[in-house]
């Protein structure tokens, strides 16, 4: 009882990365709290997916399977998740901060009258003392998230309502399988008993989803450019450097908005969060929204004509110069010196 429940998104015949990141995180939080992790799987074909969740730290998987649930829909998923949470009474409920999780979690929170924190980047367990009522709360979920356009970091708690609900950004937490998978249990729920006919009032008539072509999150080396790169053609130069180094090209929101680079390569608060071994920032001033998505890179090289560019304050190496000259030199000397 009072476990941690993770709503798991399915992606074709597998579980979405963000959900496995959450199960991994939930497993470590659950160890601290001495409770278990439960996953929720809703879909039309979830056969075998529970094994992936057991491997990442879930010990109970709730399944709701129905041919009408092939794709995510707000109302039936809300009904099912609310029913499971009312029955199981978890102390914590986690969702990915995806278009699915950010659609579903607020609706669930409203129905359960529970507190919800959006887009968390970190979760911790901690205590809280409320002076006004002289009450000490133990083992609360600290929900940590950037706010105010990334200019502040807030720690949010829900002292009195359960479950404590949060959505968590994709890619900010590590996904790790356990050495030995847990020997978990599947609990099957009867969908007809949980959903109403009206829950299918909104009908999906067409759906076009492309597989992600690039994997920014997994890239060990990223060469990124800002608006200052000036054109799509100039970005080609960054791509050449990324290619020789075996990395990916990324861009700031301004570069994406200007059409220099694809949306799926956007790094920052409204794009993906990356933490590569090496991040080469070319002509990037370093707005806080961009830094939020890359500041955990192990090593940062900033190439900028402005010696006072804000990004230089978090860089390990600063090259004050024009990327049009520096990048070709880097390519040349890499080719010369690499074996």
């Amino acid at each position: 009882m009072n476990n941690i429940i993770v709503y798991c998104e399915t992606n074709g015949n597998t579980v979405a990365d963000v959900s496995l990141e959450l199960i991994t995180k939930a497993h470590s939080l659950a160890n601290q709290l001495k409770v278990d992790v439960e996953g929720i799987l809703i879909g039309s074909e979830t056969e075998g997916l529970e094994k992936i969740l057991f491997a990442h730290g879930a010990s109970i998987v709730h399944k709701a399977e129905d041919s009408r649930l092939a794709f995510y829909q707000t109302l039936p998923h809300t009904s099912i998740v609310c029913a499971i949470m009312k029955k199981e009474k978890p102390q914590i409920g986690l969702f990915g901060a995806t278009t699915v999780g950010r659609d579903l979690a607020p609706r669930v929170a409203s129905a359960l009258k529970s507190g919800l924190t959006a887009d968390c980047t970190s979760l911790e367990i901690g205590d809280h003392y409320e002076k006004k009522i002289d009450t000490r709360y133990e083992n609360l979920l600290y929900q940590i998230r950037p706010a105010f356009g990334g200019n502040i970091v807030a720690t949010i708690i829900n002292p009195d309502t359960r479950p404590q609900l949060a959505t968590v950004r994709e890619g900010v937490m590590k996904q790790e399988a356990l050495q030995t998978p847990l020997k978990g249990k599947v609990k099957t729920w009867k969908v007809d008993e949980l959903v109403e006919k009206d829950d299918f009032a909104v009908e999906i008539i067409d759906r076009q989803v492309e597989e992600k072509k690039v994997n920014m999150k997994g890239a060990q080396i990223i060469v990124a450019g800002g608006y200052g790169i000036g054109s799509k053609e100039n970005f080609e130069l960054l791509r050449q450097l990324a290619d020789v180094l075996g990395g990916e090209v990324g861009g700031t929101r301004a570069a994406v908005d200007a059409g220099y680079i694809d949306h799926e390569r956007q790094i920052g608060q409204t794009g993906v969060t990356v933490r590569p071994k090496l991040y080469i920032a070319c002509g990037i001033s370093g707005q806080i929204q961009h830094r939020a998505g890359m500041m955990e890179s192990s090593m940062i090289i900033s190439i900028n004509t402005d010696p006072n560019a804000p990004i230089n304050s978090i860089a390990d190496y600063v090259i004050t110069g024009d990327f049009m000259e520096v990048v070709p030199a880097m390519i040349k000397y890499y080719k010369k010196n690499s074996k």
């Binding site: 990334g150 970091v153 720690t155 304050s313 860089a315 600063v318 090259i319 024009d322 030199a329």
Partner: peptide, 24 residues
Amino acid sequence: PTKVKKIENVVFKAKEAKVIGVED
């Protein structure tokens, strides 16, 4: 139900960056 426990301003502390010249 949600309470703000703590607000931290994001202050970027300058790291000791190594400055590299543009010479080859």
